[in-house]
Simulated assay, not measured.
Amino acid sequence: MTETFQALVVDKTETFSVTVQPLTMEKLPAGEVLIRVAYSSVNYKDGLASIPNGNIVRNYPFIPGVDLSGTVVSSADPRFQEGQSVIATGYGIGVSHFGGFSEYARIPSEWVMPLPKGLTLREAMIYGTAGYTAAMSILAIEAHGAAPDKGKVLVTGATGGVGGSAVAMLAKKGYQVTASTGKADAAGYLKALGAAEVLSREEVSGGSGKPLDKQLWQAAVDAVGGAPLAAVLSKIAYGGSVAASGLTAGTSVPTTVLPFILRGVSLLGIDSVACPMEQRIQIWDRMGSDLKPELLDALVDREVTLTDLPAALEDILKSNTRGRVLVRLS
């Protein structure tokens, strides 16, 4: 095994820095499973971890990266064998525990799961945490009655990782998808993913401004939060639902109780971090089978190495990405 390996390290012990550094295995935190990382991905939370006031990382120096796929090097847990392909997302990875922006990662075994059938290591990280969040959102609105024959489904922040994944997966299932974006040049991309209709951010957020507006969508997958989420809630059809997972437009939602008590609308919170492993495995199995888009690679904005990663982290915070940014480690 190599004595040193490369990792992206954020540090705040003196001045804040984001650099690629050589590390030794002894620097990795405790965990039962040592993984040679093949791929990770860039998520909005990773971008926040790369700035001094992102409020993600509490202890420095630190390796971000909230997800990873790779091959087991060694394991103290008999459930995982040397050479086995695995993935790890959520829990403390890339937040309180060194994450996937590293050629090697040592992870607690209860956070690791076998690579789902139907997916390669690369495809798993095309999805990454964003794709998993999108899948959770779709299954949540379906549990509350959404179905392809009941009308349109809105996806906000559609050029982001969660939004693009949701558009592609919903289209695969036969839904008529309305994609909302703030990027004027993204219509072709979103229609290639399967969107039937593309609306501007202003078209979705506009309208009467009243707590109850015209009923346009049976359900929505919302990845932005803030005031746009309030506008979406006012336009959901009777008995519909909104799965909310994002905060890029803010954490305050200026709405009233009226969509909930007069139209029976459900606001469904989506948390991909602490989801129990049994449920996590079931959802990932769906992502490798009936939810898997035929052109999963169409979600990829670019593939970067550790050297390119600092620029990609800046880009996701500036909304200069479209879809998913893959990080190739080995």
Rank of each mutant, 00 (worst) to 15 (best):
P78V: 13
P78E: 15
R79H: 09
R79M: 08
F80E: 08
Q81D: 15
Q81F: 08
G83W: 04
G83H: 10
Q84L: 08
S85V: 08
S85N: 14
V86M: 01
I87Q: 03
I87R: 05
A88E: 02
A88I: 04
G90P: 04
G90W: 00
Y91F: 14
G94T: 08
G94F: 01
G94P: 07
V95F: 01
V95D: 10
V95Q: 10
V95R: 05
S96M: 13
H97N: 14
H97Y: 09
F98Q: 11
F98W: 11
G99A: 10
G100K: 02
G100C: 05
G100F: 00
F101S: 06
S102D: 11
S102W: 00
E103I: 09
Y104V: 14
Y104T: 09
Y104K: 09
A105S: 15
R106G: 06
R106D: 11
I107G: 04
I107Y: 01
P108I: 08
P108H: 07
P108L: 05
E110M: 13
M113A: 07
M113L: 15
M113R: 07
P114H: 10
P114F: 11
L115N: 00
L115G: 01
L115S: 00
L115H: 03
P116K: 03
P116L: 07
P116H: 05
K117W: 10
K117S: 14
K117G: 15
K117F: 02
K117D: 15
G118V: 11
G118Q: 12
G118I: 10
L119V: 04
L119D: 02
L119H: 02
T120V: 13
L121M: 08
L121V: 05
L121S: 05
R122T: 09
R122L: 12
A124S: 06
M125F: 06
Y127A: 12
G128S: 10
G128N: 13
T129L: 04
T129V: 11
A130G: 13
A130D: 07
G131H: 00
Y132E: 03
Y132M: 07
T133D: 04
T133H: 08
A135L: 03
A135E: 02
M136F: 05
M136N: 11
S137W: 00
S137V: 09
S137K: 06
S137M: 12
I138E: 03
I138K: 02
I138G: 03
I138S: 03
L139E: 14
I141E: 10
I141R: 07
E142L: 11
E142N: 09
A143D: 15
H144K: 15
H144I: 09
H144S: 14
H144L: 12
H144D: 14
G145N: 05
G145R: 07
A146S: 15
A147D: 14
A147Y: 03
P148H: 12
P148D: 14
K150M: 12
K152A: 14
V153H: 01
L154Y: 00
L154I: 13
V155H: 02
